[in-house]
Write a protein that binds this DNA or RNA. Sequence first.
DNA 1: CGCTGGATTGAGTCCGGTCAAGCCTTGTGG
DNA 2: CCACAAGGCTTGACCGGACTCAATCCAGCG
Lengths: 214, 214
Amino acid sequence: MTLAYAPSSPAATTALADVMERLGLRMNFAKDEEIFCQDEEADLTYIVVTGAVRTTRLLSDGRRQVGSFYYPGDLVGLETGDIHRFSAEALSDCVLLVVKRSALKTFAGDEAVDRAIWEATRRELERTQEHLLVLGRKTACEKVASFLMDLAEREGGEQISLPMGRQDMADYLGLTIETVSRMLTQLQGASVVEFEGCRRFRVKRWDALERLAE
Amino acid sequence: MTLAYAPSSPAATTALADVMERLGLRMNFAKDEEIFCQDEEADLTYIVVTGAVRTTRLLSDGRRQVGSFYYPGDLVGLETGDIHRFSAEALSDCVLLVVKRSALKTFAGDEAVDRAIWEATRRELERTQEHLLVLGRKTACEKVASFLMDLAEREGGEQISLPMGRQDMADYLGLTIETVSRMLTQLQGASVVEFEGCRRFRVKRWDALERLAE
DNA sequence: CGCTGGATTGAGTCCGGTCAAGCCTTGTGG
DNA sequence: CCACAAGGCTTGACCGGACTCAATCCAGCG
C-alpha cells in the first residue's frame, strides 16, 4: 500500500510512516468524529493518511479555539505531554495511521524515527508561533487573508479547496463566523480572491493578498 | 559556581546546564539589549542565569508581538530552526550562559542533554498553545487575569514582582498599554489583586482571579 | 527639587461582536 | 426529477469593548 503524502511532508516523516505502518493500525473516522479528547491520556500517536483533522480546545463557557489543521502526512497528537491539551476531530471522513507511544518508544534508538518526531515537533512549534502572531496582532481582514494565503501556499494549485467550514475558520482565527464571512466578501469585492461555491476559491491578485497578510 | 535555578526548572535542565557550563560562555546583557535578532542565523543557544528575557516579533508597520518571557533556568533560542523567528532582548540586566549549537551537537549522544532539550521544546510548545487560547478567545480582563495568575503561580510567594513594563504585557496579550492599565485598575477595584507601586502586587482573592482567568 | 519616562485616566471613535432575517447548497424522499 | 427540509452561509442593523488620542499623574533619579 502506498500513502499519498502531501508535498509539504518532509522525507523524514516517511521513515516514521514505515514504522507506524508495521506497528500501527489504520483507522477510519467519520466527519466530526472525535479522534481523541482534551484531558484524556495520550498514549496514541496518529498520522493523517487521507482527509483532514482539526485540534480544538474548549473553555468552560463554550468558547472554542481551533489549535491547528492537519493534512495527509502530518503527525497529530505528538505535541502533547502525557495528557492531551487539545481534542482532535475529523474535519471530513478520513483515514489515520495509529500507533501506541510505547511501541514507538521501543524504536527510540532508531535515529530516523527520532528525527522525524523531533522535526514534526519543531514544525508544530513554528506553526504555533506563527499562529500566535496572527491572533495577537492582526486585524480581522489580515487574519482571513493570512489564512487563505497559508492554504493557497500549501495546495499550490490554481483552484484551492477549503476543507473546513466557516465556524472552524472563525475559531482558528479568533473571530465569529459573521466576521469571517464579511471579510471573505470584502476580499472578493476587492478582486483579491474569487469563490466558486463556499468551499473553493482561487487567488486573483497574489500581491494584494500577500500585502494584506503582511 | 552554583546557578540559582527557579523551582520551575526540571532536574533534566541541570545536565544541560552542566554541559553548557563547560562548553559555553557567561555573558552579561544590559536592560533592553538585544540578545539575538529575528531573521538572524541561529547558531547559539542560551540559558538564563539571572534576570529575564523576552522574545518578540515585529510586523513591518511596527506592531509587535511578545512571544514569551524567560526566567532563570529557562532555555532560550532553542525553539527555532536555523533562522531565528523571534528576536530576544534582555528584560532587565541579566546573565546568560551561551553555547554554540555545533558544540551541543557533539553531545547529541549524551542522553541527558538530548532529553533536556526535548523537554524544553515540549514545554515551550505547551506554553505557546496555552498562549494561543488566551490570545484567541479571552477578553481583555481575562487576558490580564491569566497573566497575573501565571506570574503568581510561577513565583509562589506572597509578594509578586512584575519584571516587565506595561508595553511588554500589552504586546504579550495582544492589547494596548491603556487597556492593560485599565484592567489592572479594575482588578484592583474588585479587590482581586493589590499593587504596591506598578511593579509589585499580591493576590487578595485567589478564587476570583482563577475564575476570571478560567 | 524639578525632570523624565512610564503609568493612569478620560473622551470619543471604530472594529468586530450580537442578534436576527434571509439566502443558498446540499441531500433526501416522494 | 422535483419539492422540500435543514443546515450552513451571507447580509443587515445595532451595540459594546477595545483602540486612539490626549491630558495628567506619579515614581524614580539626578
